[in-house]
Simulated assay, not measured.
Amino acid sequence: VAAPLATVSVEVKLPVAVAPMQPNPPKPFYVSIQANSRVYIGDDEVDIDNVGGELLNLIGNKTPSDERIFIRADQTTRYGDFMQVMNSLQDSGFYSVALVGEDQSS
């Protein structure tokens, strides 16, 4: 597995990989929660109560627990809205969730 060098500050000389090259991972799914409680998957607005169901439709026959979901939430998002989205994701079998924050290193 290769990671961008900017994400790791520890310098190491990696060994040569003997495993065959793997295809790029599929496009990740981003769920955005705005301060006004509007929720989006990618650029498409969805009902806050059906985020998990909409994602199930998008992944087709893939296993939800194998998919990684990235949540972007406005800093003033109500905690209740965030939990509503998380509950919908978990109820639909999406357990690999990452929270996206702003990179302050630049």
Rank of each mutant, 00 (worst) to 15 (best):
T63Y: 13
S106H: 01
E11C: 04
F29I: 05
Y79V: 07
P25W: 09
Y40C: 06
S65F: 14
L58M: 15
K27M: 09
A6R: 05
A35S: 11
Y30I: 10
N36A: 03
V97F: 06
Q75G: 13
T63N: 15
A2F: 13
G93L: 07
N87W: 12
A98R: 13
N24E: 00
A19I: 12
R72A: 06
A17S: 07
D49A: 03
V31T: 03
I48P: 02
L5F: 04
D91I: 11
S105Y: 08
E11A: 14
A6F: 07
A98L: 10
Q104C: 04
P20R: 09
A2W: 11
V85K: 00
I48R: 00
G53C: 12
S88F: 05
V18L: 15
P28S: 12
V31L: 02
L58V: 15
A98S: 14
V10F: 13
M83D: 04
P28G: 11
P64L: 05
G101I: 02
I41T: 10
N36R: 00
Q84I: 13
G101F: 12
V85P: 01
M83A: 06
G42Q: 00
A3C: 04
S105P: 08
P20T: 06
V18T: 01
S65G: 13
R72E: 14
A19D: 03
T7K: 00
L5D: 04
Q104G: 11
N87S: 13
K62Y: 11
G80Y: 08
V10E: 09
R38E: 01
E102A: 01
D43Q: 03
G53S: 12
A3K: 14
V8W: 01
Y40P: 04
I48V: 10
Q104I: 06
P4A: 00
N24S: 03
L89T: 03
G93Q: 02
R38C: 08
F70K: 12
N87A: 14
